[in-house]
Design a protein around this nucleic acid. Sequence first.
RNA 1: GUGGCUGUAGCUCAGUGGUAGAGCACUGGAUUGUGGCUCCGGUGGUCGCGGGUUCAAGUCCCGUCAGUCACCCCA
Length: 423
Amino acid sequence: MAKLRTVKGMNDVLPGEIERWHRLEQAFRDRAERYGFAEVRTPLVEHTELFERGIGEATDIVDKEMYTFTDKAGEGKSGKRLTLRPEGTASCVRAYLQHNVQGQEPVTKWYYLGPMYRRERPAKGRYRQFYQAGCEVYGDPGPYVDAELIDMLVGLLGELGVRDVEVLINSLGGATTRTRYREALLAYLRPRAAELSEDSQRRLERNPLRVLDSKAPQDQEIAAGAPRVLDFLSDEDAAHFDGLRATLDALGTPYTVEPRLVRGLDYYTRTLFEVRGRGGELGAQNALCGGGRYDDMIAQLGGKPTPAIGFALGIERLLLAMGPADAEAGLDAFLAAQRPEDRPAVLVLARTLREAGLRVETDLRGNSLKSQLRRADKSGARFAVVLGEAEQTQGTAKVTDLRQQNAERREIPQAELVEALRA
RNA sequence: GUGGCUGUAGCUCAGUGGUAGAGCACUGGAUUGUGGCUCCGGUGGUCGCGGGUUCAAGUCCCGUCAGUCACCCCA
């Protein structure tokens, strides 16, 4: 029988690595809350229809990457089609509508953090279960929140030491702009269809915008001469985009306008952005986070028309871009027993110290004092504390500072130990 | 889904068709109450898995699975 192991593309995160996850997650939460966002947690499983209607059936995500299954059928009922969420936005919108949040407050700011599932071929920085942290704002048409959101992201990345990034922005305009642009783009691409890559030819009628961000050289050449969305923006769309840029300028947030930035989700309107890392660790998966405005989705899913914007960032990718971890906070003390009969007293003392808030470890498997101290040293503990016959009778403990090479052993009354170990 | 590369100890990797190895890690010890450095010992392997070729396969061939990188996709 084959060895048990994780499902392809899904990974364990073990102690030693998890500390970096905590640091990232904590930085994200802290920043999001400082900006007025509150956490929302939604189920990992949703009705398949939510993603089909929310993300768009023409997208690759919905078309071929979702983990979808049929739930067990109930009495006289057929099973329902369920899907492991491939992204977070659709679920947030569903929750927003389900609990009629839009009727309770004019503007809603939510953040989320958790695993997403897409059945793609795994690669560096791309896994089948991967983690995203994201923010969503409902009820604010922008463009000021758009800029604030982007600026918040750049601030977060900087706080985490990721400074070599590129912020790309674009605008797709509203529904009417998009329709007009789509027609113009098709008019340009159709005569050149034969020259396009196979993938782009397949996408041409279904989702022509995707041809623009193809990496195939022949596609890029053709895309370079294609009409630009920005030239098709309505006056309102253009004013919105100008407002975004002016606000980013006022915030001092660097950005690049990339008219060919399109992104693979169908729901975007107007503002679109992506932050790419330039670090070598990232490989081809250099999109650290992406987002944009999706002003039409809430109405499409049955709510009253409400403007919305959001982004998601890929935790694993950000971890790659962050580089190696700082030294983790270690133990305060490692307690050792001189003789087997000292072990209960060590446990009593360990409990006292732990109750006092100290991080304390012991190793009382029955090994020698030498072995216990060797482990104390490897544990990274600041102090070694030894209890033996003499200390037991005198109510003291021998304390050694493990950071010093030939540290003297101090005999300290147990009553003063907490204080001594905090030093 | 397509292609390239890689699978040997927990980790990093050697290994000319002829007895399975090293370093690190783990563990025991080096005049009995003290760690690191050093030294000596020990545990640990279906050589990813299945076929084939051969007197003989970790080594050669085929398949398969997994990892990884790129395409693709996207965060």
